[in-house]
Design a protein around this nucleic acid. Structure first.
Lengths: 257, 257
DNA sequence: CAGTGGTCTAGACCACACC
DNA sequence: GTGTGGTCTAGACCACTGA
């Protein structure tokens, strides 16, 4: 409910000027969500409405809300309103023996599907030429998918393969690896590189999130037993939906940390 | 240089109204940095100055710049000005056999040090009681460090241990594990859980970054050979400074992806 | 001191959602 | 339609940096 206004008035009264107003308002709303006074899906007062009630300008109210949108606490829909973000159960994914997207979702007990964003043969970028070890004049197959669980987009996968290994990208069914297996080209080993990035405008739109939300960017290079590179894949996972889990054992570095 | 203004004027002329003005300006500045026209450390025109020259309001110019600050492209210093962010060489860290912070930095060839943020005995939080498997009325040792390479803070580490394993946190030298080893309590196994998060105000301040910048949050639980939990550590790594690398081998999930 | 970024205001117009 | 968020403006004061 919108006792946000009353809460703010009370808080302002009890500590006069403890920092920027937009941060005070932000933490009041944030607290209300964490306490459960505002529940996922609940509507907040409109920006103009709240501004009037807490006696701040709309710009300041908006700034507090934008902060929370960026952190994934709230969602805003133009023409509709501002709502407490529905919270996703987090998905755990192992980093030692990688499990498939479909399996992860099965474990989570949710319907899962993919939407094709792109499928076709292209002239390779310099980066792809290097990563895939392509010969001169070779072409590259690109397949890009949006991974969706229920109604929620969870990840974007953009794979690049040598066209000699995947001459017809349209022929893939639901599983790239199953398709590669038919021609005996299923990878047996992969190197993954993870980093945290702020979502770009483009990826944010695909995932239905605000630009700037933290996400996990993963680059994977997969190899055949022969050592030949099969695929070079760049994926973006929602930061608020994924936990990646790794097990470490005693090793060199273990001693000094 | 500040041909940012001329560039903007030109671009506005060539494509009249291709989206929000602050995004147009943002991508112009972003491009200039990527092209190398603006180099790390270079000063940009002041917000008021640029606003006058591109004929936008200061608020709009500021919004473009703030976007880039959040993405780590620019840095702003109050009272001083706006600058292209110095770019860090990325550090690679393995997720299979974890290497120590000191070793990582040695490989990178940089001076490295730690600053203590906190060291002492406390009453455990409920979360710590569960994670460490503490008996009732037990106390907990907390040690928090800021990891710094050269002049750049790279990570925050906050460890919690049973006070029975670390009765005197002040006695730690530079290495927690070396200290634990003296009493035969060095861990032999650990589980790490990684996720991407936007930096909180507090952590952002410690790392000298803007709140909201993407970072990697890692929770590690370490075990003795006996299976007893030794430490529960929460770390925050700069997203723009770390790549985590994992090697995957054929396994169950491998088939379907 | 002058100049910078950080915050805040009041008001405006637009594109979109929902009725 | 009305109401929502999204963008933009002109102007103001503050806290800080640096000469």
């Amino acid at each position: 409910m919108a006792d946000v206004a009353e809460l703010f008035a009370a808080r302002v009264a009890e500590r006069p000027s403890s920092g920027p107003l937009y941060l005070q308002l932000k933490s009041i709303i944030d607290d209300a969500v964490r306490r459960g006074a505002l529940r996922p899906g609940d509507a907040l007062p409109s920006e103009r409405d709240l501004a009037a009630r807490v006696e701040l300008s709309r710009v300041t109210v908006r700034r507090a809300m934008q902060n929370l949108v960026r952190e994934g606490v709230l969602v805003q829909r133009r023409g509709s309103g501002t709502y407490v973000a529905p919270q996703l159960p987090r998905v755990e994914q192992s980093l030692g023996k990688l499990t498939s997207f479909a399996e992860d979702m099965a474990r989570r007990g949710t319907a899962v599907r993919s939407v094709w964003l792109d499928r076709g043969l292209y002239d390779p970028s310099p980066e792809e030429t290097v990563a895939l070890g392509l010969p001169a004049a070779a072409r590259v197959a690109r397949v890009a998918r949006l991974r969706i669980s229920g109604e929620t987009p969870l990840a974007i996968e953009r794979a690049a393969l040598s066209a000699s290994l995947l001459p017809d990208p349209e022929a893939i069914g639901t599983s790239l690896y199953a398709h590669l297996g038919q021609s005996g080209n299923r990878p047996v080993r992969a190197i993954q590189r993870l980093r945290a990035v702020n979502l770009s405008e483009e990826d944010a739109q695909l995932l239905g999130l605000a630009p700037g939300v933290a996400s996990l960017h993963i680059e994977r290079t997969s190899y055949l037993a022969s050592g030949r590179v099969v695929e070079f894949t760049r994926s973006t996972y929602r930061g608020d939906a994924y936990d990646f889990v790794a097990e470490l054992r005693t090793g060199e570095g273990w001693v000094t940390q």
